[in-house]
Simulated assay, not measured.
Amino acid sequence: MSPATSLEVSWYWDWVPGGEDAAAWTGYVSRLLEDWAGAKVAAARTGQDFPFTTGAMGEAVAEALLQRAGSVPDNCRLLWGAGFVNEDVRWLPLLILVEFRPARPGDSSYLMAEVGADGLADDIREPQVEYVTTDRGDGVRVVALAESEGEGLHARVNAALRLQRPGRTDVDVLLSTRVKGMDKAGAIGAGVEVAMHEIASQAGELRFGDTT
């Protein structure tokens, strides 16, 4: 019997900026893609009709992300990222829509309904519910296999976090993403949890959802 192979999965997340930073950010994304996938793209181009470069791919990815970020509501921001398996980039780009709301006074249990903890109409499997504790508050993460006419078979991840900010108003943060592919579906829940911890670590810097 062959020994089991250990796979290490890691994640990168960052905010898609506003339009005023678009030019500098586009170059940044191109450099990231060169670091992550430059060798693979160069190998694909060797002796083959593969017209793409990491620079062109980075520009295309950045343009699409900026366009998407420009269309979200004012109380939302877009996280983009990548998933790595044994330090090799596997899933790119990944997107999470992040909504910021003034925390509803009292019990935060209403967030369970917001994330579909008991299931949503398109779910075809019972949701997996995991509770998450961060340095700035507790949250919940829900993963479910779903199917819809527009998206086909996919996994949904919905999460919520009551972000505690001493001396300032707490904020309810809701995260949502959809992915296709069973390998990605099996891993994305952990990726969203990493994003929750990163948002919590930025609690003192975030300005979306402020009421003070």
Rank of each mutant, 00 (worst) to 15 (best):
residue 110 Y to H: 12
residue 108 S to Y: 07
residue 126 E to T: 12
residue 109 S to K: 09
residue 121 A to F: 03
residue 120 L to E: 11
residue 115 V to H: 01
residue 145 L to C: 12
residue 116 G to S: 09
residue 115 V to Q: 01
residue 147 E to Q: 15
residue 107 D to L: 03
residue 129 V to R: 04
residue 108 S to H: 11
residue 140 V to Q: 05
residue 136 R to G: 12
residue 139 G to R: 04
residue 141 R to Y: 04
residue 135 D to C: 08
residue 147 E to Y: 13
residue 136 R to T: 14
residue 146 A to Y: 03
residue 145 L to I: 12
residue 119 G to D: 00
residue 126 E to R: 10
residue 144 A to P: 01
residue 137 G to H: 09
residue 134 T to S: 09
residue 122 D to V: 14
residue 125 R to Q: 12
residue 130 E to A: 11
residue 147 E to M: 14
residue 141 R to F: 08
residue 142 V to W: 00
residue 144 A to R: 00
residue 140 V to A: 07
residue 117 A to M: 09
residue 147 E to S: 15
residue 120 L to N: 07
residue 147 E to P: 12
residue 125 R to W: 06
residue 128 Q to T: 13
residue 147 E to I: 11
residue 117 A to E: 06
residue 122 D to S: 14
residue 121 A to D: 07
residue 124 I to L: 05
residue 141 R to A: 13
residue 140 V to C: 05
residue 119 G to H: 02
residue 120 L to A: 12
residue 120 L to D: 05
residue 121 A to C: 04
residue 112 M to S: 10
residue 125 R to P: 00
residue 134 T to L: 06
residue 133 T to F: 04
residue 128 Q to V: 14
residue 142 V to G: 00
residue 125 R to D: 10
residue 121 A to Y: 03
residue 140 V to S: 00
residue 146 A to C: 15
residue 106 G to Q: 01
residue 122 D to R: 11
residue 134 T to P: 04
residue 145 L to N: 13
residue 128 Q to H: 09
residue 144 A to W: 00
residue 114 E to G: 04
residue 135 D to K: 10
residue 127 P to M: 08
residue 112 M to F: 09
residue 131 Y to P: 06
residue 140 V to T: 08
residue 129 V to D: 03
residue 118 D to E: 15
residue 116 G to L: 03
residue 113 A to M: 08
residue 110 Y to I: 02
residue 140 V to Y: 03
residue 145 L to G: 13
residue 111 L to A: 06
residue 130 E to H: 10
residue 111 L to F: 01
residue 107 D to S: 05
residue 114 E to Y: 04
residue 113 A to D: 13
residue 107 D to E: 08
residue 134 T to M: 02
residue 124 I to Y: 10
residue 110 Y to W: 14
residue 131 Y to L: 11
residue 136 R to H: 14
residue 113 A to K: 14
residue 106 G to C: 06
residue 123 D to S: 02
residue 121 A to E: 08
residue 142 V to N: 00
residue 135 D to P: 07
residue 131 Y to S: 13
residue 121 A to S: 08
residue 141 R to C: 15
residue 119 G to Y: 01
residue 145 L to E: 14
residue 138 D to W: 03
